[in-house]
């Protein structure tokens, strides 16, 4: 079990070790201590490793993750799990802006709150936030699920494509072309699976409202010319 103390070891040594894991290797638990808000901790993982980060991280932690499980026992700076392909990223504390941005797959769980632009341009990632999220979240979201147990800030789902948004609390305002939609059985089932995967206990899928695209904006329609 490799342990990297980032107050002693350069970040590049950690990330090189993560990138150098051989296919089929079985020593796949990495411990990281003293991250002290460092940028780009555990980026570019492409093996099914487990990484435990003890402390808070800065920009772009676990970016581009493809198959790893990264747990941050602390809070995360901007761009946590940006462009995740697959795997799981868990933040025990809060996350700063654009958490899970552009993610194509995998699961991002934030146990505290997330700031603005959570899930911006999401393309298949599932994001579960136990707390609340800031403004402009899921902007131009294309696919995947954003589940929020708390409240959402201004302009949720602005210019949304086909990402599915579920909010349990208040939505301060919906963005352009984002509307509340009926919660059908298939949505309740998908939500139940996501809540279980994200370790949410005692919260039922029917406590949420679903929001999605009105599909008026992303296909050109002459009656909408003023909105383009």
């Amino acid at each position: 079990m490799p342990v990297f103390d980032l107050s002693q070891t350069p970040l590049r040594a950690l990330n090189s070790a993560l990138h150098g894991i051989e296919h089929g290797a079985n020593d796949t638990l990495f411990e990281i201590t003293n991250p002290r808000g460092s940028h780009a901790v555990a980026v570019g993982i492409d093996r099914p490793v487990n990484v435990e980060v003890h402390g808070s991280v800065g920009y772009y932690c676990a970016g581009m993750n493809d198959g790893g499980t990264v747990t941050i026992h602390g809070s995360a700076g901007p761009g946590i799990a940006e462009n995740m392909m697959s795997g799981t990223v868990i933040v025990e504390g809060d996350a700063s802006q654009y958490a899970g941005a552009t993610g194509r797959g995998g699961l991002l769980v934030i146990k505290g709150n997330a700031a603005s632009r959570c899930g911006i341009s999401m393309k298949g990632i599932d994001i579960v936030v136990h707390g609340s999220i800031g403004h402009m979240s899921a902007f131009m979201g294309q696919s995947g699920h954003l589940v929020v147990l708390g409240d959402a800030g201004d302009a949720l789902g602005d210019s949304l494509y086909e990402a599915k948004l579920f909010v349990r609390g208040q939505v301060k305002s919906l963005g352009a072309d984002c509307i509340e939609k009926a919660m059908r059985l298939e949505h309740l089932e998908a939500l139940a699976v996501l809540l279980e995967k994200a370790g949410v206990i005692g919260v039922k899928p029917d406590e949420f409202k679903r929001y999605g695209s009105a599909r008026k904006l992303y296909n050109f329609h002459i009656d909408n010319a003023e909105a383009y």
Binding site: G37, G58, Y59
Partner: peptide, 8 residues
Amino acid sequence: GSEYRALV
């Protein structure tokens, strides 16, 4: 701090 790094 602009970043948490500054506060550690």
